[in-house]
């Protein structure tokens, strides 16, 4: 899941990025509204964390612009303003959620999960394909009652594959949702991680779940 953080207070942006990355999200950070708008028009994100007071284009304006343009990416607004009228203004401009600063990081994580869940149209906190299950809260991955230990990146990749179980996901899709803006398209990092995952998920099972679709991408199915 790839998240764009638009926040001009460098240190706040940094810890949000770090915390989200450690949860397995791919995170891009920009410091002003204009750059944020540019990234959003050229990349696909699963969620946006948007500060209100931003240089060049402020958060409210950016939010309205995105919604007018038809961009439906879930948005959480972050701001030091916590008056009811500010919240109403923020939500009415098209934001999905509103979190006043200072916030508890766990709450931000939970709210991000809610938005991603809503985006999928699902409410469960567990992804399940056949005997493979992934807990979105505890990050526990279990196949046939056996707990599988994954790195953060492997977890993020598996989560993305499982969310799209039964459908082919291209390398570009993977790079856009699992890796951040600094991903180098010319490396074979994705193939390497797919291999890691195969070793952990499929080895020792007759039923191989991760398939390569030649010339297209990968597929996770029963």
């Amino acid at each position: 899941m790839r998240i764009l953080v638009i926040e001009d207070e460098v240190k706040i942006a940094q810890f949000i990025k770090r915390g989200l990355k450690e949860e397995g999200y791919a995170v891009d950070v920009v410091n002003d509204g204009e750059e944020g708008h540019f990234l959003l028009s050229s990349n696909e994100y699963d969620a946006i964390i948007l500060d209100l007071m931003l240089p060049k284009v402020d958060g409210l304006t950016l939010c309205r612009t995105l919604r007018t343009e038809g961009n439906q990416t879930p948005i959480i607004m972050l701001t030091a303003k916590d008056a009811v009228k500010d919240k109403v203004k923020g939500l009415d401009s098209g934001a999905d959620d509103y979190l006043p600063k200072p916030f508890a990081f766990e709450e931000l994580l939970a709210r991000v999960r809610v938005l991603l869940r809503k985006k999928d149209g699902r409410v469960q906190t567990q992804l399940k394909v056949d005997d493979l299950s992934l807990d979105l809260l505890t990050h526990k991955v279990i196949r046939a009652d056996r707990e599988i230990d994954l790195t953060v990146k492997e977890y993020a990749l598996l989560e993305y594959l499982m969310r799209n179980a039964g459908n082919i996901v291209t390398r570009t899709m993977i790079s856009e949702h699992v890796w951040d803006i600094n991903f180098d398209t010319f490396t074979n990092v994705i193939d390497v991680y797919i291999n890691y995952l195969r070793n952990k998920i499929d080895s020792g099972f007759d039923n191989k779940m991760i398939h390569t679709v030649r010339g297209k991408g990968y597929l996770l199915k029963k």
């Binding site: 207070e9 240190k11 810890f15 915390g19 030091a80 600063k101 200072p102 916030f103 508890a104 766990e106």
Partner: peptide, 14 residues
């Protein structure tokens, strides 16, 4: 006051 507090809280929590 909230900006430094947010940084403190967030950094500590993370």
């Amino acid at each position: 006051l909230k900006t430094p507090l947010s940084v403190l809280k967030g950094e500590l929590e993370v």
